[in-house]
Computed example of a mutant assay.
Amino acid sequence: MYATETTYLDDLPIEIELPVLPEPPTEDTVLDQNTPSDNPHPLSEEELQAKFLEILKGILESRNQDLLKTDIEHLKDLYDTHIKTGLYAFEHEEIKAKYLKNWADKQGITFHDIHSQIHMRKVRDRGNGLFGMTCNVATEFTYSYTDSPEAITSFKLGTSHYIHLQEKDGTYKIVKEWYTDPFADSLDITNEKSEEMKQFILNHKAPDYKIDERTQKAVDYAHMWCGIGEGENLFRYNKKYLNCNPRGGDCANFASQILYEGGGFKKNGTWNYTNDGTKAWLNAQAFKNYWVGSGRASYIAKGSYKEVYQSAYQLRPGDIVAYEKKGRITHVSTVTGLDSKGYPLVTCHNTDRLLVPYDLGWSNKSITFHLIDVHY
């Protein structure tokens, strides 16, 4: 949870790998140590980026539709599963597709669309029809509840990818992929009392809630600098602050920024940031302990999903959700919205989320949720 001087997502190294793959190489080693190209008229970097932007758009849009429909057979066709790394990459997406379906069933929602926006960073011709590339991807999901299909909710996820595409018979297939998977912490969902959970969620109504000016400023800051903000803020963090992702995670740093820059909370000797941040500013466990221990915040509930999902409807924009795994807080996010049923939506870094349902990607029964009311 500590920082480096990098402030733009364009400069991020690839951090999170598929669990079964070896250590991912850095961007420089995977793209610059190339085998000589067998193309007698190689394309320039600009031409390669333009070409593979369109190719990758097609692959990701096809993959999104397969995730939407849980079409595993068509999904598999996007990968060269005869190669070990291609098989691993496919198997991970297969698990994710099933997880999204299970989560939607638990939630009582229908996904309507999944659409990705790509920022290509580098492309290298590695010879013999093999191309390596790194890129940032912002993926927008839209959904509605089954009993109110007209009320559409959208959320975004930001991911950083390293991909190898191999051309064969005029078609490119994925032979290797690492990316900062927002679901990597929890690709399992308990079915215990899922029907009871679904009915509770569907029967819930959004609260009659009006946000105050101070909290609105916190929400606005979160949405602007979450890494997948609109316009010029897409794939960018606030360069006033160090980016902590390469040292383990930027979630607490960003939550602290939201509370200070947006929420107007004053710094002090324990929670502070100058050229670097204090532990309570940067570390998820210390951040949670400080806010609850200082009296600036208090608990709403703590427990597994099935123990807190009803209490979670007490969360309001500006509040905090902390996620505990194996006895430690490993992630924190800020509530910045409520959907049409009043379900809390969170915004955070590491990986980047914008108005995402608070438990999506954190559904394992081993995860303990800390629901925290911030006293604005």
Rank of each mutant, 00 (worst) to 15 (best):
Y162P: 03
Y241L: 07
L371Q: 01
F155G: 00
E61P: 06
K69T: 11
C226W: 01
K266G: 09
T270Y: 05
T81S: 11
Y358E: 07
V308W: 02
N283A: 05
L354Q: 01
W178G: 04
E232M: 13
L338F: 08
T180D: 14
G264M: 10
R124Q: 08
L165Q: 01
P22E: 09
F235Q: 06
G293R: 08
Y343F: 13
I118L: 15
G231V: 00
H74Q: 11
T330F: 11
Q107V: 02
T278G: 06
A222C: 14
S44R: 04
N350D: 13
I59H: 03
M1E: 00
S160K: 13
G227P: 00
L202D: 00
L87F: 13
A312W: 15
D220C: 08
A297N: 10
I95S: 05
S154Y: 08
I300D: 02
L43F: 09
K341Q: 08
H349M: 05
S194T: 07
I163W: 01
E46T: 07
E195G: 06
A206N: 12
R353N: 10
T171W: 03
R296E: 09
T134G: 04
L100V: 00
G269M: 06
A280M: 07
S304K: 13
K76F: 02
R353F: 00
W271Y: 07
D319H: 08
N253C: 06
A151N: 11
D71N: 14
T159R: 09
L157W: 11
S298L: 04
K240P: 06
N102Q: 12
Y143D: 06
Y237S: 12
K173T: 15
I152R: 04
T171P: 02
H112C: 03
M133L: 15
N268K: 10
Y323P: 04
L48C: 05
W271G: 04
E140Q: 15
P344H: 12
G269C: 06
G170S: 09
G108L: 07
V30M: 12
N268H: 11
K69A: 07
K122D: 00
H349P: 03
G318C: 14
T110V: 13
V321E: 08
P357N: 11
T190W: 12
